[in-house]
Amino acid sequence: MTPAPPRLVAEGLTLRYDARTVATDLSVVVPDDRFTVVLGPNACGKSTLLRALSGLLAPAAGRVLLDGAPLSSLPAKERARRMALLPQTMSAPEGITVRELVHRGRFAHQRVLRRHSASDRDAVAAALEETHVADLAERRLDELSGGQRQRVWIAMTLAQDTPLVLLDEPTTFLDLPHQIEVLNVLHRLVARGRTVVAVLHDLNLAARYADHVVAMRSGAVVAEGPPSATITEPLLRSVFDLEATVLPDPLTGAPMVVPADSRD
């Protein structure tokens, strides 16, 4: 039996905003049922790659294949039933409750005039449970802390109930305990058979949680593979211009990055 081809593949993408080219000939294969972390310095094209993978940005050249079919050929709702993206910027109407917001993740499963089915309620309840915000369900989003709010947004993405979940910097602006909480949620998703792709900034957390790392610089993939093969001293130098020592994490054995002491 030949293994099924990966569900999400990008082939030879050229990505552009207006006249500014962010990436040319970018190809990425997202391994199924794994936690893929995209790493790279600021403005290296990580978010742009995620936007292209999710269909928010149409590539100027190349194509994204979802389950073997070009993404651009799929109707919006059909795509959204297979793949969810939590972008970096979103807005919530003032005063919306947590449950209402999470429920909006169900859009792709609803028909225009017949909304609020039992399966919607179940999916919303499950998403609230999975992200540990069930007890906040009736609270207003704007009353919550940053960490709670971020988990609510992730709950909304989970309520979409897609096998593929893409998240653009889901842990940025969170303190360390909240980052760990969010990453544990994502880890559980992968354990239950979903494919997760996230842009992260913290190298050590990426090394601990990722099954697969995609390291980018200037719109190109510099290295791909498991953290042990990708988070290495030479790679940190070439991707981040960072002098560092990589040691085994005393708790997990995953690579642990200790930046060189560059103080004068």
């Binding site: 959204a80 939590l86 972008p87 993740g105 005039l113």
Partner: peptide
């Protein structure tokens, strides 16, 4: 109008999220 209500509710989430949750924006 009733046919537009669901789309308007998604649009409140911002263009990116409206699209990624399945609205043909």
């Amino acid at each position: 109008l009733p046919w537009g209500v669901a789309s308007l509710r998604q649009l409140e989430l911002g263009d990116d999220l409206a699209r990624s949750t399945g609205l043909a924006l």
